[in-house]
Design a protein around this nucleic acid. Structure first.
Length: 206
DNA sequence: CATAGGATCGCCT
DNA sequence: GGCGATCCTATGT
């Protein structure tokens, strides 16, 4: 029997202070949603770390606090979902303690449960990479929308993260620069994007 | 109130 | 791999 089966990841994991390390450790964990009795899930294969007020790429850079970024200041373990380009719902996990607005963007998962439901939501016939590779399409497949903003990551909320498999080890992790943040000056060069090396469900973004 | 720009995607070549 | 769609958010007057 696998000792990692269906262990829900709890707040003590998210409320640590090293968001970059948390982004690494989220690789291999399983993002789950259940709405109207329909379970969908995927193994996390791509993440990005956003280091709060010090990070020019972060929405909370310099302590910026608006209606949108308000949930980033909550204690770790809640969802931050915001709309990008007016259409795409991007899912982040808030980390660290209250008033320190760190977050990890989940960019891609390898589909596990609820394949039929995910295909239907994406209006696709067969599983292929574009089903869940990319933060916008992943949210679409898992029915993640901004109405989940601020929800705690628990099964009762309908959205949570599980440990099902052995942890991903360092040599399996590929590191790079974050996607779509050219405006972030020198912080655009930080190596804070993490993927599972060679995994075909990683987004094609360069 | 007006405006600029974005943590993207999918279609086209 | 290049480019346009699309509309919300943030900011400034």
């Amino acid at each position: 029997m696998n000792k990692y089966r269906n262990q829900v990841v709890t707040n003590d994991f998210f409320r640590r202070d090293d968001v970059v390390q948390i982004a690494r450790e989220l690789l291999g964990k399983v993002l789950c949603t259940r709405f109207d009795g329909v379970l969908t899930s995927g193994r996390i294969v791509e993440t990005e770390a956003y280091n709060g007020v010090f990070d020019q790429a972060c929405h909370a850079y310099g302590g910026r606090r608006t209606n949108r970024t308000d949930v980033m200041y909550q204690p770790g373990g809640v969802a931050y979902v915001y709309l990008c380009y007016g259409i795409h719902h991007l899912f982040n996990v808030i980390t660290n303690i209250e008033d320190i607005p760190d977050a990890v963007l989940i960019r891609a998962v390898e589909p596990l449960d609820g394949m039929d439901a995910m295909l239907q939501r994406r209006e696709m016939q067969r599983p292929e990479r574009r089903l869940t590779a990319g933060p916008g399409v992943m949210s679409r497949a898992l029915s993640i929308t901004t109405n989940l903003n601020g929800r705690p990551l628990t099964p009762e909320s309908g959205i949570w993260i599980e440990q099902r498999f052995p942890p991903v080890v360092e040599k399996e992790i590929e590191t790079g620069t974050r996607v779509g943040i050219g405006y972030a000056g020198e912080d655009a060069q930080l190596p804070w994007r993490f993927c599972i090396k060679g995994n075909k469900w990683v987004s094609p973004a360069k």
